[in-house]
Design a protein around this nucleic acid. Structure first.
Length: 515
RNA sequence: GGGCCCGUAGCUCAGCUGGUAGAGCAGCGGCCUUUUAAGCCGUUGGUCCCAGGUUCGAAUCCUGGCGGGCUCACCA
């Protein structure tokens, strides 16, 4: 027999947690009610309920539905008992509707069942639609059915409507609880639900935009033997059957470009990517990117597509191209400003770095009070100056273009300047929301770039990219000129829903394990 | 990882110049058949995040941990 000492801590903790919870009075009471209901012959978890309308439909079609019978289902969110009658609000996906229950209407047995209901229970009701004396559209219940007994108390939120606006009292706002128990957050905070409905609409809108242009949605590996397509550290896992190391993708770029080699002329993927790095307001270990590759196009063309796509998504989802993000008004109407990186630094930092070598750059950085590390190359230093002086100032949508070569091993050299690449990042509200280039399709150049990255890696840069021999082989077969784009879906959603943190646009943001 | 702040009832919070816990809402019991943050009367409920320490005595002070928020650094 396994001794107590060998039991995993998690099991012990779980046992203890349950014991503590079972002592919780509120849960105990609900379990008692559940038992009573079962003893009365009520199935607290029946199989289905046929509803005729949602709460919203009843309210919107009141004229036709007045005195008509409807069947509506939802979660009890408010309860006011008045002797032998009661008002409740039940909530469904569309909102809330009031129901009115009278003992003499439903009968003694149903009234006993009603007395065992709690806020949080899910019920279905049948009854006629009417308006109360105070003018609220309400269902006079003739019959109701318990659809799911709730055993845990909700963080109850009281609210009233004042001047047409919803005023909430003591809202459920503990961020940790809200993120850990998003289901509760969603029940109790309707504005949270709105954010995620918008997120879905944003993605649908983008997908339609791309499909309408004839691009093919594809799926590429998440488990990759060689990770590539971005500069970042990966999560590592192990495949047992093949006894090999696998990485969770940090990007899908190299796979999508293989598909361009294969003859698809426009491919895209909404990709969950994984990066083994710190977390903050703008970063979650797993995040979503839409990557798009289109053959025979360059980055100028991609800029137009980007501004058209983002602005039309805003128009479609929000009904306007002028948005407010954290108090700043932002106009997404195309065309967006195009600003080469060096010009931007000249404009905001007042220095010309276009001809500076690494040594000069270090001096410039020092003069600008930008901290740089010893191992950094000139591209990295420029990026740092940019991040410090320029980026926060770019509130209105701006394409920053033409990055230093060594920062972008997968981008094609600039047609007018071999030290630069044809790359742009759309920046809105001081944050990058994407990244794009004229894709490098010269296999020999690409090999050299990979080799340069491998040298950086050898020098200790853990984020330097890894040489992918199969990708090179693909390029050697020939890839047409191609424009590529990646858009951070989470950040775009933050922007379009005016949320300050990435965690507010992820249903289940990454958290440390509970206790 | 650094800095600042926070962790008390199911929820929102008070108590924190040390004397072992309180409010509102929710819950429970009672009155109330068009109320709506319903109301009125009564009432239950707490390993005060955890572990050490100081002290006659710790929710309160100290140390360490755990969890969270904001922020800086790195990145999308």
């Amino acid at each position: 027999m396994i001794s107590g000492q060998l039991r995993p801590d998690s099991v012990k903790r779980e046992t203890r947690r349950r014991t503590v919870e079972e002592m919780n009075q509120l849960i105990q009471q609900r379990r008692e009610k559940l038992k009573k209901l079962q003893e009365m012959g009520v199935n607290p978890y029946p199989y289905k309920f046929d509803r005729t309308h949602t709460s919203k439909q009843v309210k919107e079609h009141f004229e036709e539905l007045e005195n008509q019978e409807v069947r509506v289902a939802g979660r009890i969110m408010a309860h006011r008992r008045m002797g032998k009658a009661a008002f409740m609000h039940i909530q469904d996906m569309d909102g809330r509707i009031q129901i009115y229950l009278k003992k003499d209407m439903v009968g003694d047995f149903a009234w006993e069942v009603y007395r065992l209901l709690d806020i949080g229970d899910i019920i279905g009701v049948r009854g006629k639609v009417f308006k109360t004396r105070t003018g609220e559209i309400t269902i006079l219940v003739e019959e109701f059915e318990l659809l799911a007994k709730s055993l845990r108390p909700l963080p109850i939120v009281k609210e009233k409507i004042e001047d047409g606006k919803r005023v909430v009292f003591d809202p459920f706002q503990d961020k940790e609880l809200r993120y850990r128990q998003r289901y509760v957050d969603l029940i109790v905070n309707p504005e949270v639900r709105e954010v995620f409905i918008k997120r879905s609409k944003i993605m649908t809108s983008m997908r339609n935009f791309l499909n309408n242009r004839g691009y093919l949605e594809v799926e590429t590996p998440i488990l990759q033997p060689i990770y590539g397509g971005a500069s970042a550290r990966p999560f590592v896992t192990h495949h047992n059957a093949l006894d090999m190391k696998l990485y969770l993708r940090i990007a899908n770029e190299l796979y999508l470009k293989r598909l361009i080699v294969g003859g698809f002329e426009g491919v895209y993927e909404f990709a969950k990517d994984f990066r083994n790095e710190g977390m903050d307001r703008f970063h979650n270990p797993e995040f979503t990117q839409m990557e798009l590759y289109v053959a025979y196009k360059d980055y100028y063309w991609m800029m137009e597509l980007t501004e058209t796509m983002i602005s039309s998504i805003a128009q479609e989802v929000l009904g306007t191209m002028v948005i407010t993000y954290q108090g700043q008004q932002i106009d997404l109407t195309p065309p967006w400003r195009r600003l080469p990186l060096f010009d931007a630094i000249k404009e905001f930092a007042g220095v010309d770095v276009s001809d500076a070598d690494e040594e000069m750059l270090r001096k410039i950085a020092k003069d600008l009070n930008v901290e740089v590390e010893d191992g950094w190359g000139s591209g990295k230093i420029i990026d740092e100056i940019f991040g410090e002086y320029v980026e926060p100032n770019l509130v209105q949508p701006t394409f920053i273009t033409d990055y230093p070569l060594e920062m972008s091993p997968l981008a094609k050299k600039h047609r007018n300047n071999p030290r630069l690449v044809e790359r742009f990042e759309p920046i809105i509200a001081g944050k990058e929301i994407g990244n794009a280039f004229s894709e490098l399709n010269d296999p020999i150049d690409q090999r050299e770039r990979f080799e340069a990255q491998m040298e950086l890696r050898a020098k200790g840069d853990e984020e330097a990219q890894v040489l992918d021999e199969d990708f090179l082989r693909a390029l050697e077969y020939g890839m047409p000129p191609t424009a590529g784009l990646g858009v951070g879906i989470d950040r775009l959603t933050m922007l379009l829903t005016d949320q300050p943190s990435i965690r507010d646009v992820l249903l289940f943001p990454h958290m440390r394990p509970e206790k």
